[in-house]
Simulated assay, not measured.
Amino acid sequence: MPATSWTPRLRRAEGPLYAAIADALAADITRGKLRAGERLPTHRELAAAVGASIGTVTRAYAEAERRGLVRSQVGSGTFVRDLTDPASYSPMLDRSRIDLGPTAAPLVAGDLGHCALAAALAGLAARADLGALAGYQAHGGSEAQRAAGARWLAITGVDADADEVTVCSGAQHATVLALAALACPAGVLVEELTYPGALAAAGWLRLPTHPVALDEHGLVPDALARACRDSGAKVLYCTPTHHNPTTAVMPKSADWRSSPCAASTG
């Protein structure tokens, strides 16, 4: 396939040129100016078109690939990805990138999140059963939705059947349901610095919270054991990966099997 004659429309910005090229590429994919599968200009051709060095274009293409906008094939070139195809476009599950877990980025027009949302909404609008989807749904999600949840959990290493999956209206709703189902009147164990939504959920359920000390790795095991004994609480709410607000990551070597209470991670 011959390369497209694409030339980015660069906006004046304070940031580096390579980022502006990647932003322009994202914007043109969103507008439909660049279609899935099209081969982009070579590094040398694009460098000549925008008056930049080959190194700058190489970095721009690398940034676009990091965002999931393009794919590079040695000897063939750089191609636009199909953002509507989950098999081709799955940035949240791509292990070649850094997974920021529960963190979220704003949806900016022309950026990766905007492209994904636009594609998803377009696919939803084209469905023949859109009217049925807008009506009342089965409690806990439909069978297809719960099966999809089980498949996603399997990718993350959690073995669950569809019957064990419940679809919730967001993470806060899920937190309230989990605490209501699992916590006893003694309350909930939380990190001494914890997500405000967890405190709000416990407060709404009138459950006392018991703070547990943190260090640079997250929860301190000895402090957790003491809190379990002293409080009588049966549930722990914690964020072991990218803790909010410290960003600490709990090491896998931590052994929680000796802890006298059950754990529920948020």
Rank of each mutant, 00 (worst) to 15 (best):
R31P: 09
R66H: 02
R35P: 08
I21V: 15
Y61R: 11
L34H: 01
L10Y: 05
A24K: 00
S88N: 02
G110F: 01
L25I: 07
L100V: 04
R81M: 12
T78V: 06
S88F: 11
T30E: 15
E63G: 06
V74R: 15
P16T: 06
L100R: 08
L40V: 08
G51S: 02
S53E: 04
S53M: 08
A36D: 09
A109E: 15
L100P: 06
E14Y: 12
R97L: 03
G51E: 10
D111T: 14
G75E: 13
A13Q: 14
V70G: 10
R12S: 08
T58H: 11
R81C: 02
L17R: 05
A104W: 11
V50G: 07
D23N: 12
T78D: 02
L107E: 14
D82S: 00
R44L: 08
T7E: 04
G75W: 03
D28A: 09
R67P: 04
R59N: 12
A109N: 14
D111L: 13
P41G: 07
D23Q: 05
E63M: 04
D94A: 05
R67D: 09
L34E: 08
T42E: 14
R67I: 11
V70D: 07
A48R: 06
D94L: 09
P91K: 09
A20R: 06
T78Y: 03
L40W: 07
T56K: 11
A62G: 01
R35E: 11
D99V: 00
A64P: 07
G77C: 07
P86K: 03
A22T: 08
R95M: 14
G113I: 13
V57H: 08
G32T: 04
P106T: 08
R11S: 05
G51T: 13
E38D: 01
L83D: 12
D111G: 15
R67T: 01
V80P: 13
S72G: 00
P41S: 07
Y89G: 13
V70W: 05
K33Y: 12
V80M: 12
A87P: 05
L46N: 03
S88Q: 14
L83A: 08
V80E: 05
G32A: 02
A22G: 01
G37F: 00
T58E: 11
G113A: 14
R59W: 02
S53Y: 02
T7Q: 02
S90I: 02
Y89H: 15
I54A: 01
E63V: 00
I98P: 01
P8Q: 03
W6F: 13
A36M: 11
D82N: 06
Y18A: 02
I29K: 04
A22Q: 05
L17Q: 03
A64T: 09
S76A: 14
R9N: 07
H43V: 15
M92R: 15
T78F: 01
Y89S: 15
S90T: 15
R31F: 03
R59A: 03
L46I: 04
A105M: 11
R35H: 03
T58I: 04
D111Y: 14
R66Q: 00
L10K: 04
L10T: 11
